[in-house]
Write a protein that binds this DNA or RNA. Structure first.
Length: 467
RNA sequence: CGCGGGGUGGAGCAGUAGUAGCUCGCCUGGCUCAUAACCAGGAGGUCGUGGGUGCAAUUCCCACCCCCGCAACCA
């Protein structure tokens, strides 16, 4: 079975932070796992580069928008490289391929689009229309500015025509939304009778020209969703190969739930395309118990974690803090603690102590070891298929704990049965090296190499914690 | 009545209608192969408050209190 695994495309107005890294890393781990299982996987990520906000930011830096996007987009790529994230395609919404596909898609959506005069109160600070209810003393609550009354012609997508169908997709399980909270929230949103939404902007210049009206550009959010099809060749023959024939899996955080679980399937239905098979939504993070925010200044740059803990250290720390899908808190202090106990004292130390006792003579592993490792592998597969990355890690670390107990009980350094005991352990370690591969690809390689030449080199150096 | 998450041993979290578990820390002991690591045992909790249903509730129901996230540049 083929799989198309995607992350959202990230808005280049900001540099990559922990949230972006988390989603992208999870996608990378899943990709590596499913490949290991013999499946063909296409892993897609990228950047979202249009919109008034981008144009504004570029102007502030005295750059033209494209130049600005080139730079920011490059920073995302660099970050993924630092985290050893191997995507198959990095889409940019300023790519010619994307623009062409988007226009073509709109042509095919023509029957579900209509134009309407729209009059509203527009705040130039927010770059959006506000309702009377949102105003405080007649002013925009965020910018303390009086909004302008603007009359604008917009093109709308007939969302209402598809709401029932989307609901059916979800209820029938044809579109799986996980975890359950996200599925429930989507169904609740569907019951609120959402309105048709505008897919064009008259005021925004930095965007893709709207095919039916050259005075307008395509609304960024609408255009951004189309990256999923433009990237794999919408409008060309190769498209079907990855859209129709693959299981489509979207990974995203809960803030953009509505766009992905309702708008996106509706748009696809309207364009007579296959809808996604699964959408997995993860939660939000706090840092040291506080929300992550630029104003508070506690935004974590994933590159800093890599610098401090190494690539695999960073990869492990990001995914081992709390269950995938839930909200969670990242604590700097806990990073060091977890790094020391799990990576240095746990995995690293185990490999070192066993290799020290190893000789070239290797025997077949005994049944109890085979049974124990098989148990881990079975649970591992089961959890992985449900995207339970946190539980997968737990399972592997239980096997590491088992090995440590096994050594202490059997005292290979003084046992007559030394060779058999060590062989058993070496087998277990080779199994661990295999299991950690999706999470810790470099470490996995290092262990395999060490097993070959019986030489142990420190995998994770113990770190002093700040007291 | 905006939406959502949560209040469990020192810290961070699991969990279930019927002797309360895990990780880290702490104490004691063991071991010496290892990255001052590893193993065993232990101390430590009236499971937010007040009611209700049950033979039995931390677990179900109701009310209340408190904390946090989204709604505000940001996954």
């Amino acid at each position: 079975m083929k799989k198309l695994i995607t992350t959202p495309i990230y808005y280049v107005n900001d540099i990559a932070h922990l949230g972006h890294a988390y989603t992208t890393l999870a996608a990378d781990v899943l990709t590596r796992f499913f490949r290991e299982q013999g499946e063909q996987v296409f892993f897609l990520t990228g950047t979202d580069e249009h919109g008034a906000k981008i144009a504004e930011s570029a102007k502030k830096e005295g750059k033209d928008p494209k130049e600005f996007c080139d730079e920011k987009s490059e920073l995302f790529k660099k970050t993924w490289e630092n985290l050893n994230i191997k995507y198959d395609h990095f889409v940019r919404t300023t790519d010619e391929k994307h623009e062409k596909a988007v226009k073509k898609f709109l042509e095919n959506l023509k029957d579900s689009i209509y134009e309407k005069e729209y009059e509203g109160l527009y705040c130039t600070g927010c770059e959006k229309f506000l309702t009377e209810k949102e105003l405080v003393d007649g002013l925009c609550p965020d910018h303390k500015k009086e909004p302008e009354k603007i009359k604008e012609k917009n093109y709308f997508f007939k969302l209402k025509d598809y709401l029932n169908k989307v609901e059916k997709l979800i209820e029938s399980g044809k579109l799986k939304i996980e975890p359950d909270f996200a599925r429930k929230e989507t169904l609740a949103l569907l019951k609120q009778d959402l309105d048709d939404f505008s897919i064009s902007r008259q005021k925004v210049k930095w965007g893709i020209e709207f095919p039916f009206d050259k005075n307008q550009t395509i609304y960024v959010w609408f255009e951004a969703l189309l990256n999923y099809v433009s990237s794999i060749g919408y409008g060309t023959d190769e498209f079907n190969e990855w859209w129709d024939d693959a299981e489509i899996v979207h990974l995203l955080a809960k803030d953009i739930l509505k766009f992905h679980t309702i708008y996106w399937p509706a748009i696809l239905l309207a364009a007579k395309q296959k809808t996604p098979d699964k959408e997995f939504i993860h939660g939000f993070f706090t840092v040291d118990g506080q929300k992550m925010s630029k104003t508070i200044g506690n935004v974590i740059d994933p590159n800093d974690i890599v610098n401090e803990f190494g690539v695999d250290g960073a990869r492990y720390l990001l995914l081992s803090q709390f269950p995938f899908g839930q909200d969670g808190d990242f604590k700097k202090e806990k990073f060091i603690e977890k790094y020391n106990s799990d990576l240095a004292n746990g995995l690293g130390n185990l490999v070192a102590r066993v290799l020290k006792l190893a000789t070239d003579k290797k025997l077949e592993p005994e049944k109890n070891i085979l049974d124990r490792t098989k148990q881990t592998r079975d649970n591992y597969l089961e959890y992985f298929k449900d995207f339970k990355l946190f539980e997968v890690l737990n399972e592997i670390w239980k096997l590491i704990a088992f090995c440590n107990e096994y050594i202490d009980k059997n005292k290979p350094w003084e046992s007559e049965n030394r060779e058999q005991i060590i062989s058993n352990l070496l087998y277990a370690i080779s199994e661990i090296a295999f299991l950690i591969e999706p999470f810790l690809p470099e470490t996995s390689e290092k262990i395999k190499k060490q097993l070959e030449n019986n030489k142990s080199i420190i995998l994770f150096k113990r770190m002093l914690s700040i007291t």
